[in-house]
């Protein structure tokens, strides 16, 4: 969370491996156990509910809102909170409620799409590295080590500057820097799997590599991937907001929460609510996702739960 330079989720925050969630222990599968433990964790449940609420608010809310996010009305500039404009309006007379909902769409959307990209890269990279083994593996992992030390924020800033502040590129760039930890985990799993006898047996029976990976690696890492994704979404949202705040991310008239916070910060002396409201939604979302991620970790890996 803390380091916008390298937001790869640290391994300590993930459950320890291997957890085969389809495995049955004492009559109930680990999925059921994990689900039970998660429901017991009050903070995690509240976080999930609040996050779903915010998501719904962002994606469905605009249909019920009479104002467009870029609709300016100079007659109602910089109004405080009122019945007509629940969250007030900004310096250009745009309805802040509409903007917060619209900004949420972009921020949450960026988080999920970039996370999906990072997961795909990480899983494929890790699987190849582990499966190839030997020299290829050590070169690939050395590269990961080097990349861990890179100041990503700087590179993304460069990318955005050079190739224009294109939102698709932003998605890809954000996703492209977050795959390191998951690549390491998947590689470790593939490596340990390769040593097991049943895999040798499967190979000798002529089963294809991809089938073996699908059958045996995926179930083992699924739990980790879920937690990883839950924690990567907020870290990508943070990076997006960081860039937008510097004016290098999402460009007006489009709005993300980062853009709204930037606008609010510029005008906070006159209309503080334009800073406070988007900051509240953004921070609350980060809170919820982090709580949820930690809750999922504890649910999937009861040993790691901190007393």
């Amino acid at each position: 969370m803390v380091n916008p330079c390298n937001l790869n989720v640290p391994e300590e925050r993930l459950p320890s491996l291997p957890i085969d969630l389809n495995q049955v222990e004492g009559g109930s599968s680990l999925w059921a156990d994990a689900w039970y433990r998660l429901r017991k964790n009050r903070f995690a449940v509240i976080s999930l509910v609040v996050f779903l609420g915010i998501t719904l608010f962002s994606y469905v809310g605009p249909f019920f809102c009479p104002y467009g996010f870029e609709e300016m009305d100079l007659a109602t500039r910089a109004q405080g909170l009122s019945l007509a404009h629940w969250f007030g309006t900004d310096g250009l007379g745009r309805d802040l409620l509409a903007r917060v909902m619209y900004g949420g769409r972009i921020s949450i959307g960026v988080g999920f799409i970039a996370t999906a990209i990072s997961l795909s890269i990480g899983v494929v990279y890790g699987a190849i590295s582990g499966y190839a083994g030997g020299k290829i593996d050590s070169v690939m992992m050395r590269l990961v080590d080097i990349l861990y030390a890179m100041p990503y924020a700087i590179f993304i800033i460069l990318l955005m500057v050079i190739f224009g502040r294109n939102i698709v590129l932003l998605f890809v760039a954000l996703g492209a820097v977050q795959w390191l930890t998951i690549a390491r985990i998947v590689r470790g799993q593939v490596l340990s799997l390769k040593k097991q006898e049943f895999v040798e047996a499967a190979v000798s029976l002529g089963l294809s590599d991809s089938r073996i990976i699908l059958r045996h690696v995926i179930p083992n890492v699924l739990g980790v991937v879920i937690v990883y994704a839950t924690l990567t979404v907020p870290s990508i949202m943070l990076l997006e907001a960081f860039l937008s705040f510097l004016g290098l991310g999402v460009q007006p008239p489009m709005a993300s929460w980062g853009v709204l916070i930037k606008d609010g910060a510029e005008n906070m002396t006159v209309y503080p609510w334009t800073l406070l409201i988007p900051s509240f939604f953004f921070s609350l979302t980060l809170f919820c996702l982090n709580f949820l991620g930690d809750g999922l970790r504890d649910a999937l890996d009861p040993r790691s739960s901190k007393d």
């Binding site: 916008p4 705040f245 910060a265 503080p272 800073l275």
Partner: peptide, 14 residues
């Protein structure tokens, strides 16, 4: 940890 710099900064300056 959860509050990003660009939220904390404007807030405490406010």
């Amino acid at each position: 940890i959860c509050l990003p710099t660009f939220v904390v900064g404007p807030l405490i300056s406010l």
